[in-house]
Design a protein around this nucleic acid. Structure first.
Lengths: 163, 163
DNA sequence: GTTCGACGTTCATCTAGATTAATAAATCTT
DNA sequence: AAGATTTATTAATCTAGATGAACGTCGAAC
């Protein structure tokens, strides 16, 4: 485990990096995203203070990650090179309880996001985002929120214009 | 905990049912889905033998579920009325390990699904589905696969027609 | 302060997929 | 097996949102 200070705009992880990393954000704001074959970015998640980033799919399939991770603000982060949960040393029952709680909340978030992507219009997604992450709205460029919602920056701009 | 035998087509859970249930599928195939305001169904997940169904979002927010659950095949299921993980009696370390592994795999699946919904075309989604769930393809009506993928049944039929 | 690149907005066009509807095929019921 | 119900296919039309491009705005770097 190492503590790192990263600057706004700095890339912390490139796809196919060697190690499966888990990143805990102590201060600042990170972004985890993919870039498709046409070069377009799709934000998987934002991680402000207290959040944890990791690529569960890569860990479970024991492969390298397809995700980029970069800093949206100057940040202070902790990087663990081991997998989450089962690869952690079995210390206290309290720790595994914490892990289960963390994972449960993550699943709840992903579940809500999937229902949103399946059944909401662009406008509804944005309104939901405002309610769910009021703090993040003012900390990230609008175009990143757009790709988090699964729409283009232009479409989001239009939606906001109408209000 | 109770064991239940359910028939094909039978609805196991309606939205706003009283209790947060966790359902383990011993045999058969279930479906978990939402119905939007226009009456359209959106499949959140399929659960064949060995899979577990639960609404983490409802459990975490301590509210009733918005999901329907029904049986696609005659099935044998176990229903637990307690929450997953933290609400389970702390028995063995082995059990919590199992829980963490289960949740990790669920997160990996949801993560992959989100990337798919954000960045794949309808055709790419279907092709990916065929690779990931070859067994399920022949067990569920095509229209359900369509709404799992976030497209209309007509669009999926067209995609298959071209091939 | 000026320059430059990133960001947001606006608009004109295009298109993947939705919608609607009609038909055909498969499945269930008795 | 005949009818009824559900599911899949096909086709014509429509639309939310994508695409591409131009322009104004802002903050960072010099």
């Amino acid at each position: 485990m190492k503590i790192l200070r990263v600057k706004k705009g700095e890339i912390i992880q490139l796809p196919n990096a060697l190690k499966h990393n888990i990143i805990f954000v102590k201060k600042g704001l990170l972004r985890m995203y993919v870039v498709d074959d046409k070069g377009k970015e799709h934000v998987y998640m934002f991680a402000p203070e207290g959040w944890t980033l990791s690529d569960f799919s890569a860990i479970k399939e024991n492969r390298t990650s397809n995700f980029f991770i970069d800093a949206i603000e100057n940040s202070l982060i902790e990087i663990f090179s081991k997998g989450l949960g089962e690869e952690l040393p079995k210390t206290t029952m309290e720790l595994t309880d914490q892990t289960i709680d963390l994972m449960g909340r993550r699943i709840a978030t992903l579940q809500d996001r999937i229902i949103m992507l399946l059944s909401y219009t662009a406008k509804e997604r944005y309104q939901q985002f405002l309610l769910t992450y009021p703090d993040i709205v003012n900390r990230v460029p609008q175009k990143m929120i757009a790709t988090y919602l699964g729409v283009t920056p232009q479409a989001l701009s239009k939606i906001r214009g109408l209000k």
